[in-house]
Nucleic acid binder design. Structure first.
Lengths: 190, 190
DNA sequence: ATTATCTATAGATCTATAGATAATGC
DNA sequence: ATTATCTATAGATCTATAGATAATGC
């Protein structure tokens, strides 16, 4: 019934990954610890040998979601054949809109985070700062003095568009919102 | 102990107003019906003589929040001394960021709505469509063919900025995000 | 008589803990 | 012996309902 410490670490990581996915799908209060454990293939009672509290799971899950997102954003910086417009297209894609569980936690959970602990909000702040840095790298700065302001415009627009597109039931309007990428790119070129 | 039907209607309206405020502050699942009743000066048990279910309260509260927001947006359209930049400044003001309970329900609850019923999402869709129309009126269209795209850019940017600014714990970064208004207005003028 | 509100509570769900079980690791 | 996991449950909270109470309105 018991496991080795190495196995426990893998199980711990798996629980965090399941939570990171489910929290983005149903919100930070949308699933209980017993169900997260169940979906990770464990029983609810074992939870508190892995986490001090539910809040700690939320913190680890957010950190996990941010880390995975950074890894996926890195390819747009490292691959010279990919540019800002590819990133924007991917961020506003139907695939991203329809799969919050594997997508950007910033657009999926900003409202939840606004009502969360200082710790969760601090992790979120660091992630937004990191996303601004990534965006600044993707903007090949014609006007260096405006690069940061442009990066902030891009992030607010993208996060807003995805958040709104997911909330809207009218599929045509939802799709229309994602065309904001073209308007944004035009505005950044000007 | 009982009240007249006229009084009941006033009480009903007051319960909806309390819910509209509290839902925007703590999320659609952040407060129970008993506490809403208590804050409206009633006891929890009377709730179901006013609403068929908790979901119905959410629907009425969202409708109420949208209606009040439309009234407040109307003055930017009707008063010729107020322009788009005044609206943007007000939307991104510290006052709006710090008071979600009396602010725009779209930026405060988009993530919650994305996980809600078809009815709630349909009400949200109509509100976004209405905000696009308002924004189009505020944009004195130099290029009419692009007015709608520009309105969508503005709404995504503003909703995103307010959502992010509320979630971020770093006050300097939060304030910096609200300067996106200048970048947006410049982009719309170009 | 009807009904708006109140008190009380059933039933479901959630966080966290206690104690039992069975494998690890010195 | 230690510990990772399991079963079971205490205590809190939430939606919804039942029955009592007291005012309205024909």
């Amino acid at each position: 019934m018991s496991r080795s410490q190495a196995e426990k670490a893998l199980i711990h990581e798996h629980i965090v990954e399941v939570a990171a996915k489910r929290f983005r799908e149903v919100g930070l209060n949308g699933i209980g610890v017993a169900d997260v454990m169940k979906e990770a293939g464990r029983t609810g009672g074992g939870f508190y040998k892995h986490f001090e509290s539910r809040d700690k799971l939320v913190e680890e899950a957010m950190t996990c979601a941010y880390k995975k997102r950074k890894e996926s954003a890195a390819k747009y910086i490292n691959d010279p054949s990919l540019s800002l417009s590819d990133f924007v297209e991917s961020y506003l894609s139907e695939r991203h809109i329809n799969n919050p569980g594997s997508g950007c936690a910033v657009s999926a959970l900003m409202n939840d985070v606004a009502r969360s602990s200082e710790t969760v909000r601090a992790l979120f702040s660091a992630e937004v700062e990191s996303q601004i840095a990534t965006m600044m790298t993707l903007l090949n700065d014609k006007k260096p003095s405006e690069t940061r302001a442009q990066a902030i415009l891009a992030i607010c627009t993208l996060a807003g568009a995805v958040g709104l597109a997911r909330a809207i039931s009218d599929e045509d309007l939802s799709r229309e919102l994602t065309t904001v990428g073209h308007t944004l790119l035009k505005a950044l070129e000007a």
